[in-house]
């Protein structure tokens, strides 16, 4: 280091020194990074168990230096229920994409939220199936073109994009629910605070903590990473408004 300078940011040690398989500019990587930053800052590396889904983030376990289980498609919430019920003092989280959480795994999502399971769901909503090559997701926007909606999503045929944060925030078992985005440094810093808050609520055993992250998919959307910021900021956020949807700690703060 140069004399007269101090370190202000470095890669967290809990993020393993492995090159992530995600495409350039993918927010999955950003999300992995900030979850590990929070885990490191809270000093809970030895007390945290993650559950990875099926989808692009199936390999999340390759990058996070914590215990991990890899779940069947859509079943991360059931797996996390089993882990948390066995180890109530540990921090448990699922990391799931839109296909996993909001299509094939909808029942597990709703019921684990409704039971008020004390784990955290990180829901990465990028409105597309990334791993399988860009097919339509339950959260694909109306008119959005994907490989299985080549003329744009037709809501008369396939229905409307699901607003999961709004849905689960209605359930009494949910303690904290917020929709975040990672498109600017300010929003990334904000997301980190929300992740920390979710883990703290989990520690208090107040119920489910659900963070939906409006994300991108430059490869699936067929645009550059910088161009994907426009689609996130202009189109996605219009349909998926940011903000805290529910916070049972709000009055006590």
């Amino acid at each position: 280091m140069k004399d007269g300078y101090e370190l202000v940011y470095k890669r967290p040690a809990t993020l393993l020194d492995a090159r992530m398989h995600y495409c350039p500019g993918c927010f999955h990587s950003t999300m992995h990074k900030i979850i590990m930053e929070v885990v490191e800052e809270m000093g809970i590396e030895e007390d945290t168990i993650g559950v990875s889904p099926v989808g692009c983030s199936v390999f999340a376990y390759n990058y996070m230096d914590i215990d991990f289980q890899q779940a069947a498609h859509g079943r991360a919430c059931a797996v996390a229920t089993g882990i948390k019920r066995s180890l109530p003092d540990k921090f448990v989280f699922t990391y799931q994409g839109d296909g996993d959480l909001a299509a094939i795994g909808t029942a597990e999502t709703i019921h684990s939220c409704n039971r008020g399971e004390n784990f955290t769901i990180f829901f990465i909503n990028n409105a597309i199936y990334g791993m399988t090559g860009g097919q339509m997701a339950p959260t694909t926007l109306e008119g959005q073109k994907t490989s299985t909606s080549p003329y744009g999503r037709d809501i008369k045929n396939v229905g409307h994009p699901l607003r999961m944060a709004e849905m689960v925030s209605q359930l009494p078992g949910v303690a904290y629910c917020e929709r975040l985005v990672l498109n600017t440094p300010a929003n990334v810093r904000k997301a980190k605070k929300s992740i920390k808050k979710a883990f703290e609520i989990q520690k208090q055993g107040l119920g489910m903590t659900f963070l939906e992250v409006v994300s991108n998919c430059p490869s699936g959307w067929k645009c550059s990473p910088v161009e994907s910021l426009d689609f996130v900021g202009e189109d996605m956020l219009k349909y998926y408004p940011l903000g805290v949807k529910k916070d049972v700690t709000a009055n006590s703060n």
Binding site: Y5, P24, T184
Partner: peptide, 21 residues
Amino acid sequence: IGCANCAVICPDAAITVYRQS
């Protein structure tokens, strides 16, 4: 200016930032 915006937004945690003490 060592603001670390670049490191915060970097998906791959490839940036280390230093600021004048």
